[in-house]
């Protein structure tokens, strides 16, 4: 039983924005796979809901004239897995989508909800970090574009102001064309589990040289993070097994996992270092670069 005070179904995006402004205590519900859990646990601030579930305006995956890939915030993970555009250009996002929950969850959980929920373990987040995704946020009479790395303010906190809705996720051609990526989710279970560590690698290869290298982690800190120092140190280096070892040593300095009853810091660090190698290797394989 849910202690629901108010539930209003928005008819379109603008209606949803208007409703959010009219009901300052209300919160958006898309797939509800985070919201309803919190409501069930009696968490404050979840009993008034503006429902954007199923708004066609927010559910799309397309490529514009400039070759930007645009993903609507209301796109569910099953859409992403089935999308030809994603399969062709950003298979790592398929990896991430495929790793979420189970089939029932993937059929209703949205990528927008995943990001806006603000948790470090969100499976789409680390991939989008490594893809330099840009988020489009809309309110009455205003639109903002925010790089995803600036969007996360702290655990469960994202840069959304009252009356703002995330509408689109943009991935620029520079960040995906000629790039090869891999998302490695490490969890206790292969389904229905939250990542112990998530590792996303996106790279470009030129003549056996690592021309571009982007690596991001979930659960390696309070919010998803990029390992910028590591990226800098290994870019333009020749691809060797030693380089993989270097990466795995370097990332340790870019992350800050913590001990909780779910896993110790030492354990997480061990996985972080190991995943950097494995995800990089898989991305290199996709780039046709054997080792």
């Amino acid at each position: 039983m849910f202690d629901l005070k108010k539930h209003i179904k928005a008819t379109c995006l603008d209606d949803a924005i208007a409703l959010l402004i009219e009901n300052p205590n209300a919160r958006l519900i898309a797939g509800g796979t985070d919201v309803l859990i919190k409501l069930r646990h009696g968490k404050k601030g979840y009993s008034e809901l503006i429902d954007i579930n199923g708004l066609e305006e927010l559910r799309f995956i397309k490529q514009d004239k400039q070759n930007n890939i645009l993903i609507g915030s209301g796109t569910v993970f099953s859409d992403i897995i089935q999308s030809d555009i994603i399969k062709k250009h950003i298979p790592m996002l398929s990896d991430a989508a495929q790793s979420v929950g189970g089939p029932q969850i993937r059929n209703v959980a949205t990528i927008g909800g995943n990001i806006c929920n603000g948790v470090t373990s969100a499976d789409s987040a680390s991939s989008l970090f490594s893809l330099n995704a840009v988020l489009v946020v809309k309110t009455q009479g205003a639109i903002r574009e925010i790089p995803i790395s600036d969007f996360y303010l702290g655990p469960g906190k994202v840069d959304l102001k009252k009356g703002e809705i995330l509408t689109t996720i943009i991935i620029r051609p520079d960040d995906y064309m000629g790039s090869f990526g891999y998302y490695y989710k490490y969890a206790m279970r292969n389904a229905m589990d939250i990542a112990t560590i998530g590792c996303a690698v996106c790279l470009k290869v030129k003549h056996h040289i690592l021309a571009d290298f982007r690596i991001a982690y979930g659960v390696a800190g309070p919010v998803p993070i990029r390992c910028l120092k590591t990226e800098k140190s290994v870019t333009n280096k020749k691809i060797t097994l030693k380089l993989l070892d270097d990466i795995s040593r370097f990332v340790a300095h870019d992350v800050s996992p913590r001990t909780s009853w779910r896993a110790t810091k030492e354990f997480r660090m061990n996985i972080i270092c190991e995943l950097s190698k494995r995800a990089t290797k898989k991305a290199l394989n996709r780039a046709g670069e054997g080792l």
């Binding site: 189970g102 206790m188 279970r189 292969n190 389904a191 229905m192 589990d193 939250i194 779910r262």
Partner: peptide, 11 residues
């Protein structure tokens, strides 16, 4: 059942 890791079919 999130934190108690009862296996799923794919495990």
């Amino acid at each position: 059942l999130l934190d108690y890791k009862f296996p799923t079919f794919v495990d």
